[in-house]
Every structure is written in C-alpha cells, then in structure tokens.
Write a protein that binds this DNA or RNA. Sequence first.
DNA 1: GTATTGACGCTTA
DNA 2: GTAAGCGCCAATA
Length: 121
Amino acid sequence: MSSIHTDARDTDESFFLKPFNERVYDIVKRIPRGKVATYGQIAALIGSPRASRFVGFALHANPEQGVIPCHRVVFKSGALAPGFAFGGPDRQRKLLEDEGVRFIDSGEQVVVDLSQCRWKA
DNA sequence: GTATTGACGCTTA
DNA sequence: GTAAGCGCCAATA
C-alpha cells in the first residue's frame, strides 16, 4: 500500500483511515441476499466486537437508502431494530422474507431465524 | 480534555 | 424466568 500519511483524516479521500461508520457500511453491503448479520457480528468484523452499539448507530446515522441494506442487520437475538427508518418494521420483515430469510413468529415478537440465515463472513 | 450520547450485549438483582 | 443496569467503543458537543 501507499505510504501512510500522518493525518489521513485531514483528507476526505483517506482510503486508509476510514471513519468507523464507513467501515460498517462496507461490511453491511457485503451481506449476501437472503442472509442477515447481527450488530455484534459486524462489530467483530470491523475489529471491535464490543462496539456493537456503535454499529447500529452508524447505520442509523447515515442510512444511505438503496446502498446499505440496513434491513439485513438485526439484533443478536434476531429481533429487528426498534425504530426502523425504512417505513416500519413490517417493511423490513417483508424485505427479508422476499430475500428468503425465514422468520420465527413468536406471538407478537417476530425474529429472524439466525440458525439458518445468520451471515458468516 | 471532559462529558454525553447511542439501531447493543452481557451480567447481575 | 423476568427485569434492570452497567459496560464497551467511537464520535460529537
């Protein structure tokens, strides 16, 4: 790789030192269709398995609609985010179901079947 | 430089 | 078995 600049963040086009957010997007965009990843999983891929909360925050902070499949990111329990910003939790569930993700209808709590749809890096 | 926040995750009461 | 709180990491005010 090219030489490392002291303060790459000073440049907006720093490819070496991307913001945490962008790293999250990179991982989320790599999730294949029909699978879902958990916040902890993504955080682990980034290098900080404890930054799971920040992963979700990153998605909510810069939800590039059509670019970042936020609907493929779910809790470790399989539940969806409390405030999905795509049009409602029903919308997300439909999107995932349309991709082939299985859902477990536990009464009113609808969670993704991580047992089969959990994306593995 | 300190304090607060934040789509989570885990431990403890 | 259920409920609540704390902690982690990073960014922002």
